[in-house]
Design a protein around this nucleic acid. Structure first.
Lengths: 331, 331
DNA sequence: ATCGTTACAGAAATCGATTTCATGCACAAG
DNA sequence: CTTGTGCATGAAATCGATTTCTGTAACGAT
C-alpha cells in the first residue's frame, strides 16, 4: 500500500500538502489536482493507524454487549451501526458473555486503541469505568445503568413488567408466575418488581415470590424455570417471561407439555423475532431496542463532537401488544 | 494514560528497557522489577495504536458478515471469537447487509488498520480481494466461495438441499416446493440444485422450477414466497426452505393458514434456534456453522503465524434431523 | 594479560500520518 | 518604494511504541 510519502514524491509536493488535500484543507487547485492524480495512480488509502496515533482519536466506536447471539442485542447493534456509519464511524462489536473480566479487557482495548467512544450494556452493576472516564473517552450506557455519572439510554423495565402481568390479569388468568434473569442484572430485577406489584395488588398469592424464578437470560434458563413452575403443587396458569430468550424457553416447554397458549397464558417482555407462533397467542411487550441503539449512538456522537453538557439519561417507552386470541385458563 | 516514557522515567531506565520487559525479552531481574513497579504504579497499558504502527500488524481480526441479525452468522461469530480471543486476538464484526459497497469499505478499513487478517462471508461472487491479497493479508472465506485462490471453509450445500428434499419424499409428501435465496448467492443456488435433483428423480413435477421461488434470505422473503406457492393452481404439500430465516417466514405463513406441520411438510436447511415448535414437526438440516467459524479462525491464525502452504478449502458435513412427528399429506 | 564472547541497556531510527512553525511570494495599502 | 497582510507550501516535530545499532561491562579461555 502506498504511503503519503510516495504520493508526495510522485506528485512532486511535500507530504504535508498531500495530507491537506486528503483532509480538505486549503491547497491550490493546481497542486491538489497533481495530488489527486498521484493518489489515484498509487491507489492511496491513508494508514488509519498512523492517523489515529497522531490524532489521538480513531474513527471507531466500541459497542460492548453481553450476548451477541441474542437478537435483542443484535437489533440494538443495527441501530447503533446505522447511525455510526452514516457519521463515518465504524463499529466494533465486543461480546462479553455477561463476564465482567472479558468486559474489562474490552474496555482496556477501547482505551489503548484510542477509540472515539464506547457504548456499553454493562455485564454487571460493578463495571468499573474509572479508566475510561479518566481518559476522557465518551461513554453511553445502554439497557442497564452504571454507578457512574454518564449518559444512558434505558427503558422503563418496571413498566414492562407491569404491562406484561396486567395484560394476563385482564385476560382472566388467576395464578401468574414470573421467570426473570439473574438478581444482579438490573433489568431482570425491575421487570420482576413490576410483575410483583400487579400480582400483589390483585391479591393473587399469599407469597408471590414462590411463583418467581431467577435464572439465566437464556433459552435454557427459561426452560428450567418453566419446568420448576409446572412442578409446583399448585402450578400457575400463566407466566411472565422477563426476556425474549426465557420466553422462548418457557414456550418450548409449554408446547412440549401440550399447554400451548392461550390454554396457558404467556406474556414476554421483549420481541420474539424468529417464532412461528400462531398470530398473537402470546402477549408481547415490545421494547424499543433498535431505537435505544439509535439514541445511544446519537448521544455518543454528540459527546465525540465535544458536547459537554451534564450527563443525561433517556428513558424510552415500551408498548404492550396483547394476545388477541385469549382463551380461558385451564383449571 | 501513562506512556512508556513516563514509566521509563519513573523506573530510571530507558523506554527500550520498558518495552523489553513488557514484551518478555531479556532484562536483568533487578531492572525488570523496577519497571514492573513503575508500570503498576502508573497503571500503564501499551498504546496499541503505536504498537500496531510500528509492528505493522494489529492483534485484531475482521469478521465481515452479510447479516449480523441472522442467528446463523452470530453463531459463526461465536465460533470465531472463541478461538481468536484464546489466541489473544480481538474480533471486530462488520455487517455488510449483503451490500458489496459496504463490504468493500470494510475491507479497505481492514487494510488501513493493519488488521492481522480477515474472515469473510462474501456478499456476492464479485467481491474484489485484490488489495487484500496484494497487501499480503491473510484471508479466509466462509460459507461462500470467492473467485480467488484463498483458504475457505464451506459446507456441502447441494447435499443439504438433497437431504432436506429427500426426507420430505420419504415422509410421503408428493409435491415438494422450494424457497431459496438470491440467484447470485452461491449457497442459495446450490441448495436449490439439490432440491431439484431429488424432485426430478422422483418424477414429481413436469416443470420443477414452477415450484421454485427465489427471494431474499430473510423472514419477509420466506413469507412472500410461501404466499406465492400457496396461491398456485396446484399448490405444493411440502416445502424446502433454503435458510433458517426463510424457514421461519414460511412457517409463519403456514401457521397463519392453519397448515401447521405435519399437515404441510417443512424441511429447513439451517437451525431454528428460537422457535417454539412442537418437537420435531419440522425436518432440520443442521449446519455446522459454529464449527465453520472455529475452523476458519484456526486456519486464519495459522496463516497469521506464517504458514504458506497452498490454499485449502475445507468442506464440512451437515446432518439431517428428520421430523419425527410426520403425518399424512393434506390432500 | 589479552582476546573473544555474551548479556544487558541506552540512543536513535522507525512506522505513516498530522500539525506546527517558518518561509517565500504576491498583492494591497501607505 | 516600503511595509504589512495573507496565503500556499515545505521542513520538521510529533504521536507512542518497537527494534536496530552501539557501547560497556563481565567473564571465561588462552
Amino acid at each position: 500500500m502506498a504511503t503519503i510519502y510516495e504520493v508526495a514524491a510522485l506528485a512532486g509536493v511535500s507530504p504535508a500538502t498531500v495530507s491537506r488535500v486528503v483532509n480538505g484543507q486549503r491547497v491550490s487547485e493546481e497542486k491538489a489536482a497533481l495530488v489527486r492524480a498521484a493518489a489515484t495512480e498509487l491507489n492511496f488509502t491513508p494508514n488509519r493507524t498512523a492517523r489515529t496515533l497522531r490524532r489521538q482519536n480513531s474513527e471507531v466506536i466500541a459497542l460492548v454487549l453481553p450476548d451477541i447471539e441474542n437478537p435483542y442485542f443484535t437489533s440494538m447493534a443495527r441501530g447503533v451501526e446505522d447511525i455510526a456509519r452514516a457519521a463515518g464511524y465504524s463499529v466494533v462489536l465486543c461480546n462479553t458473555d455477561e463476564d465482567p473480566v472479558k468486559e474489562a479487557k474490552y474496555l482496556d482495548i477501547a482505551i489503548s486503541e484510542n477509540m472515539a467512544g464506547v457504548i456499553l450494556a454493562p455485564a454487571s452493576d460493578h463495571t468499573d469505568l474509572q479508566h475510561l472516564i479518566a481518559r476522557g473517552r465518551p461513554i453511553v450506557a445502554v439497557d442497564r445503568s452504571t454507578g457512574f455519572d454518564i449518559d444512558g439510554v434505558m427503558m422503563n423495565n418496571r413498566h414492562g413488567g407491569i404491562s406484561a402481568a396486567q395484560t394476563l390479569v385482564e385476560a382472566g388468568y388467576r395464578r401468574i408466575a414470573c421467570i426473570t434473569g439473574p438478581k444482579d442484572i438490573e433489568t431482570a430485577q425491575e421487570r420482576s418488581v413490576g410483575w410483583r406489584e400487579v400480582v400483589t395488588k390483585a391479591g393473587m398469592f399469599d407469597r408471590p415470590d414462590e411463583y418467581l424464578r431467577y435464572s439465566t437470560f437464556r433459552v435454557d434458563g427459561g426452560r428450567s424455570a418453566m419446568h420448576e413452575l409446572l412442578a409446583l403443587d399448585n402450578p400457575p396458569d400463566a407466566v411472565v417471561a422477563a426476556n425474549n430468550l426465557m420466553g422462548v424457553g418457557a414456550l418450548q416447554v409449554l408446547t412440549e407439555e401440550g399447554l400451548t397458549p392461550p390454554r396457558f397464558g404467556v406474556a414476554v417482555v421483549g420481541d420474539l423475532p424468529f417464532t412461528t407462533l400462531s398470530p398473537a397467542s402470546v402477549s408481547i411487550v415490545r421494547l424499543p431496542v433498535r431505537h435505544m441503539g439509535v439514541t445511544a449512538a446519537r448521544m455518543l456522537l454528540e459527546r465525540i463532537d465535544g458536547d459537554t453538557q451534564p450527563a443525561r439519561t433517556v428513558v424510552l417507552r415500551n408498548e404492550i401488544v396483547p394476545a388477541t386470541a385469549v382463551g380461558a385458563p385451564l383449571v
